[in-house]
């Protein structure tokens, strides 16, 4: 479908104007497990007043289901908010929020800041693994080893079938060796996290790779004299920016929420810190959990928006900008 709406494909290969082909950028992969995206069905807008054939439920049905399920799902979140507002003597105030920022409590909450620092470091390192190890490999496979596409896909989706708790059993001896070799710094966990984000990152990047003609872009750039470095950085990376961005954001979300591996390998990240602090001060732990959930929600909303914007640009035929 993307191929049909593409216009002026040959000119987009020029290193100077890598932008045009981005109109064919993939919808960012939302964290779906079935990658098949439904085709946008124009038939849903019943502009012709004939048979009003829509599969969608009636307005009332929609709102009843949404209202009931939404309400039930909001209760735990609302409870968290209520919990954080409880004053020590009864009633409500913001004392737990101010306590978090009070320098007098710095020692008590130190694990949280350490954990947060660790998680950010891990997020950056994991994104680096995705951008500089996974993405180039996927491009290489697309260009030179199309036969390896299915095996690569299988490999990248494999971590979905291997529970993190099982991975930990095997990672323990490996991290014992890593600890002896380069120390027990928290950043070393990024190697394990790179594996856990593999399915999500792969889907996001592959959706984008499928939507652009990597081979044509590359050959056009090469025939105009570009080296492999500028092909990767100046031609392919800009065209893959939606996929790379969603892969990075979703990796950040996964890393910030990861508990299993860090906890059992005795490394401190945000989640293990929350777990520890919860035992001394559950209020602060819940405040931070709320903030972390909100942050992840905004990240995913951003991925969705980036994806929809790209999909919209793709499905509306581009006018010639003359």
């Amino acid at each position: 479908m993307a191929g049909l709406t593409r216009t002026g494909a040959p000119s987009t290969g020029m290193p100077g104007t890598p932008d045009a082909a981005a109109s064919a950028a993939a919808s960012a992969a939302a964290p779906t497990v079935t990658p098949a995206a439904p085709s946008p069905s124009g038939a849903r807008a019943p502009r012709s007043g004939r048979v009003r054939a829509t599969i969608a439920p009636r307005r009332a049905t929609t709102w009843v289901i949404l209202g009931v399920v939404g309400l039930v799902f909001l209760i735990p979140i609302a409870s968290m908010v209520e919990f954080t507002l409880r004053a020590t003597g009864g009633g409500y105030d913001l004392s737990h929020y101010t306590a978090l920022l009070d320098p007098a409590n710095a020692g008590k909450y130190a694990p949280i800041w350490r954990g947060l620092q660790g998680s950010f470091l891990l997020a950056i390192t994991t994104v680096a693994i995705v951008l500089f190890l996974l993405a180039p490999t996927m491009i290489l496979v697309t260009l030179r080893f199309p036969k390896l596409r299915r095996p690569l896909e299988f490999l990248c989706l494999l971590p979905l079938s291997i529970p993190a708790i099982v991975l930990v059993v095997g990672l323990a001896p490996i991290y014992l060796a890593i600890g002896r070799a380069v120390g027990t710094g928290v950043w070393t966990l990024a190697f394990a996290y790179g594996v856990t984000v593999l399915p999500y990152a792969y889907r996001a990047i592959q959706a984008n790779l499928d939507a652009i003609d990597v081979r044509t872009l590359t050959e056009a750039a090469r025939s105009l004299g570009a080296g492999w470095g500028s092909v990767l950085l100046k031609v392919l990376a800009p065209n893959l920016r939606v996929g790379l961005l969603s892969a990075s954001l979703i990796s950040v979300a996964v890393v910030l929420g990861e508990f299993t591996i860090a906890s059992l390998l005795n490394r401190q990240n945000l989640q293990t810190a929350l777990f520890v602090v919860n035992k001394q001060d559950p209020y602060v732990a819940v405040i931070l959990a709320l903030l972390a959930l909100l942050f992840a929600f905004l990240l995913l909303l951003l991925i969705g928006r980036v994806g929809t914007a790209a999909a919209l640009r793709r499905s509306t035929p581009r006018k010639d900008p003359t």
Partner: peptide, 23 residues
């Protein structure tokens, strides 16, 4: 709904446990 589903389905973990202790 997509974003909320993603958060709750894949990144909740410990934080969901807190939510239910609070509930």
């Amino acid at each position: 709904v997509d974003a909320a589903s993603g958060v709750l389905a894949q990144f909740g973990g410990v934080m969901l446990a807190f939510a239910f202790i609070a509930t």
